[in-house]
């Protein structure tokens, strides 16, 4: 695999994503609005679990960051279909890019977009919502951001590998995003969900991401609180990436928006 070829493709993809106004609104503006609305509810849920008062941001910020972070799946995945619509995919295949380089080149911008979104939301939440991060916990936070971004990217690539048309991808992607984030405690705290939803929550990747971030923001960095969720997220990302690689067929024609 050539890092230079991957870099050229990834750079092009990032330029394509950069000019998307809708992405800015959905990934950054909307979650900040929602965080301000649900912060009291998350604060109440955390206090019921014995967390100190005034920590609503520690629950609301990770929850909504993940809720809207799942939409990166949509934005990132569309890139695979767009190239077919513009007849660029066949041209890319005639270059020296290998199928593996194609997938990696398409995936890196999704990874960057996801990690960037989480980083910006967390950074803005410090002055806006009083989110607290101890300097010593920054390495743990970076590890959690990287693992979460990898998980989100792997979902996007796996769905793009499986779905032949952009309509399929859009429908399944929307459902997966809402279900994974909602059941994992993205919309409301897991402790407030009905019993059946609480039982399902640990089966969703969002649950582990939210758990890791919440523990970091509450200053409770430890093996079970942070490093176990990070390991679970990395495992999910690895499994989905492997499935995507096995299923991905560069010769398959994808059906984009007509």
């Amino acid at each position: 695999m050539s890092p230079r070829r991957i870099g050229v493709l990834a750079g092009h993809e990032l330029r394509m994503l950069r000019g998307d106004v809708f992405a800015l609104v959905i990934l950054l503006v909307m979650p900040l609005i929602v965080m301000s609305l649900v912060k009291p509810m998350f604060g109440l849920a955390l206090r019921q679990q014995g967390a100190p008062a005034g920590n609503g941001a520690a629950g609301a910020v990770p929850g909504e960051a993940l809720m809207f972070g799942m939409f990166v799946v949509m934005f990132g995945g569309f890139a695979f279909y767009r190239d077919h619509q513009w007849f660029v995919w066949e041209r890319l295949r005639t270059t020296r890019l290998t199928p593996a380089e194609l997938v990696v080149g398409k995936s890196l911008p999704i990874l960057a977009m996801s990690a960037g979104q989480l980083a910006v939301l967390f950074a803005l939440s410090v002055p806006l919502f009083g989110l607290r991060v101890a300097p010593g916990d920054v390495p743990a936070l970076l590890a959690a951001v990287a693992a979460t971004a990898a998980m989100i990217t792997s979902i996007a690539v796996a769905l793009a590998a499986v779905c032949r048309s952009v309509q399929q991808f859009s429908s399944i992607g929307n459902l997966v995003s809402l279900a994974v984030a909602g059941a994992g405690g993205g919309l409301v705290p897991t402790s407030l969900l009905p019993g059946w939803a609480q039982a399902v929550a640990p089966a969703t990747p969002a649950y582990w991401a939210i758990k890791a971030f919440r523990e970091i923001f509450l200053g409770r960095v430890g093996w079970t609180g942070v490093w176990l969720p990070v390991a679970v997220l990395a495992g999910i990302a690895a499994v989905l990436t492997a499935l995507a690689v096995l299923r991905f067929d560069a010769a398959e024609t994808k059906v984009s928006w007509s």
Partner: peptide, 23 residues
């Protein structure tokens, strides 16, 4: 016939309603 219609307009609100009313 569009599966997106089914997801966006039927499944999501129905599931969210059943969850939300427990809060």
């Amino acid at each position: 016939r569009d599966p997106g219609y089914l997801v966006m307009s039927l499944i999501s609100p129905l599931v969210m309603y059943l969850v939300f009313t427990n809060l």
